[in-house]
Design a protein around this nucleic acid. Structure first.
Length: 237
DNA sequence: TCATTAAATTGTT
DNA sequence: AACAATTTAATGA
């Protein structure tokens, strides 16, 4: 296995375009923003590495600037269960950061990714000083709750096409993942890992969805045409 | 800038 | 899992 220390060794301050990719920065006042920017660090994370690991103390609140991560846990039998993907613009770990506990899941890149981190102490400082930041975190928690409830629905559906559709709709969530935009950069293999299906089956599902006009399949990515249609996908095969 | 080649990704069996 | 077809990225003239 790969050491997860390597992630912390390549940290550096963020460039301007990278700062622009952080959705909550624009909600801060000047002094709050300065403090946040001062503390923010970014590093590249590669597949196999751990951005954060179950059981480790939470020291950072993380966000995806570029790339794609997966959130998973290891159960008692040693099997890995993937919960969701985290595309650009997504921030996670606030639950653990709030309580200053240990991480409850593993976060690993599905491909080379740029991950930004804000120290937990700064996270708390922002909570204590910025209303805009509080609003962002609250909104995020609420939106994620809705997503996890939706995820439970997805798990009870056994129709692969619908599973793919709903999972895609989650990844295109503009509130949680404002960095995604119109095109989600994801290969069919990556999506297969996330949804828990074979690449072949995902390919088939994507073709069906494309025929229905909800998405367009592009090389190395997917373009969303109708998010509502993805969310309320009816069985039709 | 263009052409060639290698690598990645997709579509299909 | 394997294969061919397609697209992109990298290389060098």
């Amino acid at each position: 296995m790969v050491s997860d220390n390597s992630l912390h060794q390549r940290r550096r301050p963020l460039t301007e375009p990278e700062l622009d990719a952080i959705p909550w920065l624009r909600l801060l006042g000047p002094d709050e923003r300065e403090r946040a920017v001062d503390d923010l660090r970014i590093s590249e994370a590669q597949p196999g590495e751990f951005v954060c690991r179950m059981g480790r103390p939470a020291t950072y609140w993380f966000g995806v600037v570029d790339g794609l991560l997966k959130m998973s846990t290891d159960n008692a039998e040693g099997q890995t269960m993937t919960f969701t993907g985290v595309p650009p613009g997504g921030w996670f770990g606030e639950g653990t950061a709030l309580k200053r506990e240990v991480y409850r899941y593993n976060i690993q890149p599905l491909r080379n990714s740029l991950v930004a981190g804000l120290h937990v102490d700064t996270f708390h400082w922002l909570l204590d000083h910025s209303i805009g930041f509080n609003r962002f975190v609250m909104n995020q928690l609420n939106e994620r709750l809705g997503q996890f409830i939706a995820a439970r629905e997805i798990d009870r559906l056994n129709n692969p096409d619908i599973r793919v559709a709903r999972s895609l709709a989650a990844l295109f969530n503009p509130t949680l993942y404002p960095g995604v935009g119109e095109v989600l950069r994801i290969t069919q293999q990556e999506l297969a890992y996330l949804v828990g299906l074979s690449r072949q089956r995902v390919n088939e599902a994507l073709t069906t969805l494309a025929e229905q006009g909800s998405i367009r399949v592009e090389y190395g990515g997917l373009r969303i045409l109708d998010l509502q249609a993805l969310r309320s996908q009816i069985i039709k095969r």
